Simulated assay, not measured.
Amino acid sequence: MRLGAIATYPVKSCRRLEHGRATVHRWGLDGDRRWMVTDGTGRMLTQREEPRMTQIRPEIVGGALVLRAEGAGELRVPAQPADLEPITIWRTTVPLSRVGEEADVWLSAVLERKVRLYYLDDPTRRPINPDYSTPDDRVSLADGYPLLLANSASLAALNDWLAEESPNEGPLPMTRFRPNAVVDGAAPWAEDEWLGRRVRIGAVTFRVPKPCDRCVITTTDQETGARGREPLRTLARHRNVNQGLLFGVNLIPDGRGEIAVGDEVAVLD
C-alpha cells in the first residue's frame, strides 16, 4: 500500500490544497483547518448550510492566508493572534481569534450573507472526544479528528454501485469526501479492519479510532457547489452501520513527522 494523495483545507469547508508532502503535528497536517467561517451570530458555518463555500480558494503564502474567489479578487489575511471570542464547534467551545472587519466584509460579499472569519492561533487548544482519545490528543478545526484517510479502492467499489444503481450521478471523485490522505493498493473496504489498530505512513504512526460517518457535504460537487443525492443514497444501502453512513477512517497521530505521496502505508498492531 502507498500514499496516493495528500490534501489540506486551510479554511474549514472551503477549497482544498493538494500537496506532494506535508508535516504532521499531533493536531493534524500543517496548515489544515486553522481558519473557520461563522454566520453573523458566531455560529459555525460549513458547506452543510452554504455550498458556495466551495468557491472560496485559500492558499498559504509566506505564512499568511490568501483568499480568492471569482469576481472578488483576493484578500491577504495574516496568521496572527487577536482578540479571542468563544466559538462553539459541535459540543465544545473553543476560544478563537477574530480576524477582522476586512476579512468579514470580503467573505460576506462572496457568500452574500453576513459572516465572520476566525483563526485558531493555538492548535493545541482543542481536545478530542475523550471516548476515542488520550488526554494529550488535540485537533485543529476539523470536525472531530486530526486527519481523515480514504481508500481509493473503496471509492472504486462505491462507483461500481453507483454505475448500477444511480448512473446519472456517478462516478464521483475522491474530492467529494475531503480526505487528508488517500491510500492506494489496499483492498476495497480494507480500512474497516484497521479500526482500533495503528497504521504507519512513511515514518509516522497513527491510531485509527473510528470510521467516518458521512454527511450532506459529500453530495456537493467541490468544483461547482452543485448538490445532488449521491453518494449518501447508495451509502445508505451498502454502508449503513448503526445509522452511520461510513466512508473513510479518522486518524490520530502519535507524534510529529513528515509524510509524502508514495510513502509506504502499513497496518501495525
Results as ranks from 00 to 15, higher is better:
Met53Val: 02
Leu111Asn: 06
Gln55Ile: 06
Ala103Cys: 11
Glu230Ala: 08
Thr234Gly: 07
Pro253His: 13
Leu141Ile: 10
Val115Cys: 11
Met1Val: 13
Asp213Met: 05
Glu102Leu: 06
Ser133Thr: 08
Leu65Pro: 00
Ile201Leu: 15
Gly4Ala: 15
Thr93Ala: 13
Pro10Phe: 07
Glu164Val: 05
Ser97Gly: 08
Pro78Asp: 08
Thr41Lys: 15
Ile89Glu: 14
Arg48Ala: 13
Ala64Gly: 10
Thr88Gln: 14
Thr205Ser: 15
Thr205Cys: 09
Ala150Arg: 10
Glu258Ile: 14
Ala82Pro: 00
Ala266Ser: 13
Val261Asp: 10
Ala190Trp: 01
Gly20Tyr: 06
Ala266Leu: 15
Phe206Gln: 05
Gln243Leu: 15
Ala64Asp: 15
Glu74Phe: 07
Tyr9Pro: 05
Thr8Arg: 04
Pro167Val: 01
Asp263Gln: 12
Arg229Asn: 14
Gly196Phe: 02
Val37Glu: 03
Thr23Asp: 13
Ile259Gly: 02
Ala203Gln: 14
Tyr145Trp: 14
Trp106Leu: 11
Glu193Ala: 15
Gly42Ala: 06
Ala5Val: 00
Ser133Pro: 09
Thr8Gln: 00
Trp106Cys: 06
Pro58Asp: 11
Thr54Cys: 15
Arg138Thr: 03
Val11Phe: 12
Ala156His: 14
Ala190Tyr: 03
Leu84Glu: 09
Asp254Met: 09
Cys212Ser: 04
Asn240Ser: 13
Asp137Ile: 00
Ser97Leu: 08
Ala153Asp: 08
Thr224Val: 04
Val216Lys: 07
Pro209Trp: 00
Pro127Trp: 01
Val11Gln: 00
Asn129Ser: 11
Arg34Asn: 04
Leu235Ile: 07
Leu232Tyr: 06
Arg57Gln: 15
Gly202Arg: 00
Leu155Trp: 09
Pro86Asn: 02
Val105Arg: 12
Glu191Asn: 05
Val216Glu: 05
Ala109Leu: 08
Tyr9Asp: 02
Asp269Ala: 13
Arg52Pro: 01
Ala260Thr: 14
Asp254Arg: 11
Leu232Met: 11
Pro253Lys: 11
Val182Pro: 00
Gly63Gln: 07
Glu169Gly: 03
Gln222Met: 07
Asp39Cys: 03
Pro135Ala: 09
Tyr132Asp: 05
Met44Asp: 03
Arg116Met: 13
Asp122Pro: 01
Gly40Thr: 04
Leu29Gly: 02
Gly73Pro: 02
Gly255Trp: 11
Leu172Gly: 05
Glu223Ile: 05
Pro173Asn: 13
Met1Tyr: 08
Asn159His: 08
Ala266His: 10
Thr134Tyr: 01
Gly185His: 04
Ser166Tyr: 14
Leu29Trp: 09
Leu235Thr: 07
Arg33Ile: 11
Gln222Cys: 05
